[in-house]
Amino acid sequence: MIEEWNKVHVVYVPAMEKQAAASPDWAPGWCRLDSSSIALTFPLPIGPTPASVKTFFFPQPETLLTYTLENNHPDKGLMREPERSRDMQVVLGVRPCDARSVLLNNLPYQEDQFFQANRQRTALVGFSCDQTLSTCFCTRMGGSPLDSEGLDLALSRTEDGFLIEVCSEKGEALVADLELAPAPESDISALAARRNAGGNPSATELDSLKGSELGTLYDAPLWQSLGEACINCGACTFICPTCYCFDIQDEVVRGQGRRIRYWDSCMFPLYSLHTSGHNPRGQKVQRTRNRFLHKLKYFPDRFGPFSCVGCGRCVQDCPVNIDIREVMDDLIHLTAVE
């Protein structure tokens, strides 16, 4: 099946080991599949893939415009959109948490042509999680390790193979030409039973935050100690599947220019610096607070769901062990006291 896709599409699999950016199609943390590397696809690591799928929808960087400033060039100063590949790209091994992150990022990017174009040409083939890590907390955020939300094809392991769920038109197109055996009823009901056993994920204790007074959360004493420990690097925001902030800049080298959109992080002082020199989030503690409150308060207030899928990457990789689960516990405790 994968081999068939590889003939017509660009297929990516999670890069298990450190891989150099050998080809222009390389995406950080993912590698392009060629016939020799099919063996790489399995086994997937337990829990989330090393890098999130964010990079396929929100590349670092995205070239918005290109231009030349070369003297005597007939097109000098003319801005053009770069030619974009329209090839379908298939991403294999997507975990349910990452699939959900695409839907969450889609909320603010509803009208963003670049994000939408990338969504159009990307198909996500997901694998449900049979096992989870101790850092996984998708169920707390309203997701589930067996979810198919946001995926085009959802694969779950059965006793003797895989159950393939077709979740979208793109997914249907992927399996259209393949001869696949119809799934036995028993497998379908078994999956449904496993899903039901997980309970209703949308009812979370976190929902108390949504109704709570912002002021209480904003002035909570916990930010002081968090801000003191945080080193304000961008690791959490860059590995996070649901952090979507960007900045735009023009780069010109030897008369060739491009306007790029690249990842920015609310952890950086430059992020909120005004032209006037004023910085409304000039202190570390303000920036640390902003990241958590954006995920747990500002975003849900505006769009509904929390801007976190519980993949646990930031929990694992934070250099100073700031654990969003502990932050959530503290905040819930705070609203409960109130």
Binding site: T66, R80, P82, E83, V252, G257, R258
Partner: peptide, 13 residues
């Protein structure tokens, strides 16, 4: 040496 292939892309178009 940093490269920006603005011109090449333009030629493609």
């Amino acid at each position: 040496v940093k490269k920006i292939d603005a011109l090449e892309t333009e030629l493609l178009i």
